[in-house]
């Protein structure tokens, strides 16, 4: 289970101190598929960064499964936990242009110091799972938007993470491709993975089990 209790986060911008998250309480069960929505400035990106261990919080408590994530988590520890427990899917895919689909998918395992052969074996299986078994050697510029996002999903899955964090995963896709990608997410969800999708699209949110609405740095409704 993922649980956040009374999470506060401040930013200082132009000597102004902004209170972005104002005591967020949230819990997500293992295997749940939830979406987070909120208007611009509601704090959803900050929440996603804290959930993804890309940023730290000021006050509160965060527990990721059995691991307590402290407020002053070191950068090295955060990198290690991200690599082991969290898979990221971004709006703009963020594939490395000079690596093939297979190499992109295998990249997180490189940072676990897993051998090339084992990495590639697992990457091939995942690409097969997302329907790109024939495209392993293709470079990103040889793939469509939907295919790129499926590669990104395979990359997010390769470390067998506890949670997939998707930030506007369909924001750059047309409606048909969006459906394809959401189908993949649902398939992944069926395997028991926890999926958190940040979106501003209602029809995406409706496809998740639970919607968390953020407003002014607080959870307004679940």
């Amino acid at each position: 289970m993922i649980s956040l209790e009374g999470i506060h986060k401040h930013y200082t911008s132009d000597s102004r101190r902004l209170h972005v998250l104002k005591g967020v309480n949230l819990s997500i069960d293992d295997g749940e598929m939830v979406s987070i929505m909120g208007s611009s400035g509601s704090g959803k990106s900050t929440l996603l960064n804290i959930l993804g261990l890309l940023d730290t919080y000021d006050h509160g408590a965060y527990q990721l499964g059995d691991t307590v994530i402290s407020a002053g988590l070191s950068e090295a520890k955060a990198a290690q936990l991200r690599n082991r427990f969290i898979g990221f899917v971004f709006q703009s895919f963020n594939l490395l242009p000079f690596k093939s689909a297979l190499e992109n998918v295998a990249l997180p395992l490189y940072y676990q110091k897993i051998g090339r052969k084992a990495r590639n074996y697992r990457a091939e299986k995942l690409l097969d799972m997302v329907g790109l078994g024939e495209r392993t050697k293709n470079m990103p510029n040889e793939l469509s938007g939907g295919q790129k996002q499926r590669v990104a999903i395979a990359r997010a899955l390769i470390t067998d993470p506890r949670m997939i964090l998707a930030d506007e995963p369909t924001g750059a896709l047309d409606s048909a491709t969006t459906d394809d990608v959401m189908t993949v997410f649902k398939e992944v969800h069926r395997t028991g993975k926890t999926i958190v999708i940040v979106t501003h699209e209602h029809d995406i949110a409706e496809q998740t089990e639970r919607l968390i609405l953020l407003k002014d740095g607080q959870v307004e409704r679940e």
Binding site: A76, Q80, F88, L107, P108, Y111
Partner: peptide, 16 residues
């Protein structure tokens, strides 16, 4: 910069 950011998100340490 973006590539480095991505690598860090995927688990790259400062050292690497």
């Amino acid at each position: 910069t973006r590539e480095i950011g991505l690598r860090k998100a995927l688990g790259a340490t400062r050292g690497s």
